[in-house]
Nucleic acid binder design. Structure first.
Lengths: 338, 338
DNA sequence: CTGAAAGCGCTTACAG
DNA sequence: CTGAAAGCGCTTACAG
């Protein structure tokens, strides 16, 4: 159709407004003192000409792309999509954009994403990597200037990266204490994938809370889910079938697992919460959609995403006010464990 | 740690190799005649200095970013992830990268993605938009130079965009004819979301095939799923409960729906394929994981993704060899409808 | 409060 | 087969 019309540049705006490029650039960036009239005239010219600043030229001049990478192991889980929303919101507020990179939990893809983001000259990365082993994650983080790691618990990032960690053990304690307070004594943990750092942390919290109260977990009941989703939880609890009558509390790795547990119990004719109380973790929407509704630990997912990019932005700005931020969970009591 | 070390540029490489930037650029781009010695010397310098070409500077000079957007309504479905892989493979082969943009089926987000890709100056977009209405999709496509639409059936893109469409009606015909040939007479279509163009197309194919053979669908049996996933299929077939004994063939919108149908039948004590034969569509992995395994239509998902970016690349290169490519499906006969 | 000019790191006619 | 130089569209000291 129309031949490749020449792009309208800052020079066009400048000449239309009767000023120099410098001035135009200043109003575009809100920098320096400008007379209100000049500013208005420039803005008008921008409007009139339909000018849109070239991100690329700007990047070359400033050595910033205003692009941030967000690496997640899955995008079909509400946990990560909520984090992503939080990250996007915080990024937009600061004129940054988020590149969402899904690794499907694949280690090679994760490394690939770092390379990709480096190639594209992203200004920073927030990486949610619950499983990549430390010795593979560390070099990537070292190589890249600005990164914030979400839930890389137990890894000493030192100055290398910012960190956001949920206080998993503490959260589990909340859940366990609640169950104990309501008279439950025979609890077991329905864990996530054994290689997930968060799952280990949660298990530790579970055990500690139990022992602090003078009880101990029954190793024979211990079970894990992989993947940690609805079906995983369902299968895990089905496997507990023959001992389920001895148990009166299931502390689940997350809400999906808990929902699966719920389904298994229903099938096995076990009443929740009468026979067994069940707690989840994270408080995703599903928690209130299942029957009975889940007692769970609320993880501020949106906030985690937002905080992560704020930390990242600080680092990019050279500030590093925070090295590590600990996120606390809150117990939400609903029907599955009143 | 190390202070911000100055980037190694093409000039560094040039001086190290004892040539000009022009020459370095030439070997980097494999352009023009170079003496083998010079080339080798440059390559060596590149290696020695660890030079990495700046994508941004290159983009500014060439007005190309080598970035392609792939807009999909969902990323948790194997159908789209396979398309994405195909697209990525084809893109990589040509030194392009894919930016995966998930809209969650949200129309506003979809428009937002176009804007984002424009802002970022992506060279082209392939958009899988099964639901966005034509009058919202069209302006976006018009505005953007290079786009290829996947499964925008029934929309006349003219020169505006390339198109890849599956021959849905034809595929359905294959399925229906197979069921008829195996003696089934009382078939019904378990549809996808009513606003999904593909679902309508498939329904048309279903009806036509039936009528061509002298039969007609029973409108009372017609049902749709939203969303078109496992649970959707399950619910849809449960609703057919009271008429299910009159039906001997379920032609499902896709494999997920078919798997849901399978589950519902199992629960209702209906034997597949003895009482009812079931066909799916797309041939995702799940098709062979369920029991009985699904007879289905194989859609070449990876190929669709790859073809889409190839078409896009042609358009970017100014060629436009193809305006529309029709993809044909193949019937895969398995247990659910032998 | 506003400009002139150099620079970011590439590519690409144009010469030779 | 190789170079010198201009240009891509911005930003940013440095002056005034």
């Amino acid at each position: 159709m129309s031949r490749p019309t020449r792009r309208v540049t800052i020079a066009d705006v400048a000449s239309y407004a009767g000023v120099t490029k410098t001035t135009v650039s200043r109003v575009l960036n809100n920098k320096g003192e400008l007379s209100p009239e000049t500013r208005a005239r420039v803005l008008q010219a921008v409007e009139h000409l339909g000018y849109r600043r070239s991100r690329i030229a700007r990047s070359l001049a400033t050595d910033q792309t205003f692009l941030l990478g967000l690496i997640v192991p899955s995008i079909s889980s509400e946990f990560f999509t909520e984090i992503a929303r939080g990250a996007e919101d915080a990024a937009w507020e600061n004129e940054y954009k988020i590149l969402l990179c899904n690794t499907e939990g694949d280690w090679d893809r994760e490394e690939g994403m770092f390379l990709f983001l480096e190639d594209i000259q992203a200004d920073g990365i927030v990486v949610c990597s619950p499983r990549l082993p430390e010795d593979r994650l560390m070099p990537l983080v070292e190589q890249f200037q600005n990164v914030v790691v979400v839930n890389g618990q137990g890894i000493a990032w030192r100055e290398l990266a910012g960190a956001i960690e949920t206080a998993d053990a503490e959260g589990m304690q909340l859940a366990v204490n609640h169950l104990l307070a309501s008279g439950r004594r025979n609890l077991t943990y329905v864990g996530g994938p054994p290689d997930a750092r968060v799952s280990t942390e949660r298990y530790l919290g579970f055990v500690n809370a139990l022992e602090a109260a003078g009880y101990a977990p029954n190793p024979a009941w211990h079970t894990t889910c992989h993947p940690a989703d609805l079906n995983g939880g369902y299968q895990a609890v089905r496997q507990l079938k023959h001992v389920l009558h001895e148990i009166d509390g299931l502390v689940c790795f997350n809400d999906l697992v808990a929902a699966g547990a719920l389904r298994a119990c229903a099938e096995l004719g076990i009443r929740v919460p009468d026979d067994i109380a069940i707690t989840g973790c994270d408080d995703i929407q599903l928690a209130t959609l299942v029957h009975p509704q889940l007692t769970t630990l609320q993880t501020p997912k949106h906030e985690i995403g937002a905080l992560a990019v704020k930390m990242l932005l600080e680092r990019i700005g050279g500030q590093r006010k925070h090295e590590t931020i600990i996120i606390h969970q809150r117990l939400i009591i609903r029907e599955s464990a009143p």
